[in-house]
């Protein structure tokens, strides 16, 4: 356990080195937040609240979404995929650790740093500049749990995308499809409640809402937080288990590249 804690710390340290990149990311993030905010507020103030979203709820939705997308990493990362392609993964595979757990530990460390520079600033900015709907303080710990489950789900999905390189060697096609669809499916583009009932229900039967919409719903106290947390916990566990077996199979069947 200590080893994984140390790896998490290393993940935090590694990402804190690239401060410039973090701040550039933050700046882009805020600009997009302002654009999304303008569009959504224009809609809800012209037509009145849509699906329960008024200006204050919309501010929470937009700024929390902007913060969460970098915290959970909503786009497919290629760290492991790159190592599979070059064959460097051989080094990761002979360590006395479980590779999936080790990568998750590093990702938790990265996410810890992202809380400080990517999650808190946009939310604080949104809360300062716009009417902002704060929840009952007892909800905040539930939101924290939900955010961690969102991270675990996103990690599990990214791990599977990365693991696909063991077979595909080149997963960029898969990644670009993922990167286009995910913002819509997880509730970043528009709140999932804006969709017709059948589409919303269909989406909630997939893991995607667990990554963005779920923690936002917990924060906004929409519906029972327990149902939302259960959905997230289920998908995080199911996808992690799937990743576990995929890695097992990869190690049995697959060529490790290069001499």
């Amino acid at each position: 356990m200590r080893a994984y804690a140390r790896l998490a710390l290393a993940g935090f340290r590694r990402h804190s080195i690239y401060r410039g990149a973090m701040f550039a990311g933050l700046a882009t993030n805020v600009v997009f937040g302002v654009i999304r905010m303008t569009v959504l507020v224009a809609a809800v103030s012209a037509a009145g609240p849509i699906a329960g979203y008024d200006t204050a709820t919309s501010a929470v939705y937009v700024w929390l979404g902007q913060g969460l997308l970098a915290f959970v990493v909503l786009w497919g990362d290629t760290h492991l995929a790159e190592r599979v392609r070059t064959g460097d993964v051989v080094v990761d595979l002979y360590r006395p650790w479980h590779l999936q757990a080790a990568l998750f530990a590093e990702d938790v460390g990265r996410a810890g740093f992202a809380v400080l520079v990517r999650l808190v600033p946009p939310v604080a900015l949104g809360a300062l500049l716009f009417p902002f709907r704060w929840p009952d303080p007892v909800v905040l710990p539930l939101f924290a749990v939900s955010a961690v489950l969102a991270l675990a789900t996103s990690f599990a999905v990214r791990f599977l995308l990365n693991a696909s390189t063991f077979w595909l060697l080149e997963n960029r096609g898969l990644l670009s499809v993922y990167n286009v669809l995910t913002p819509v499916l997880c509730g970043l583009a528009v709140p999932l409640d804006f969709f017709p009932g059948w589409a919303r229900d269909a989406l909630w039967s997939t893991p995607f809402p667990a990554m963005i919409q779920a923690p936002i719903d917990v924060f906004l106290e929409r519906g029972s937080p327990w149902a939302v947390l259960a959905h997230q916990a289920f998908w995080a566990a199911a996808l992690a288990a799937l990743g576990y077996f995929v890695l097992l199979r990869a190690m049995r069947k697959v060529v490790v590249q290069g001499g």
């Binding site: 140390r6 290393a10 590694r14 080195i17 006395p96």
Partner: peptide, 28 residues
């Protein structure tokens, strides 16, 4: 102990000493 001359087992962006500390934790 394994050394692959063409691959690195050190953490690319951390100081060398930190890689050693990490390995110490990983190998207990």
């Amino acid at each position: 102990g394994v050394v692959f001359g063409q691959r690195s087992q050190l953490w690319w962006d951390l100081p060398l000493a930190e890689s050693f500390d990490l390995l110490r934790a990983v190998y207990r």
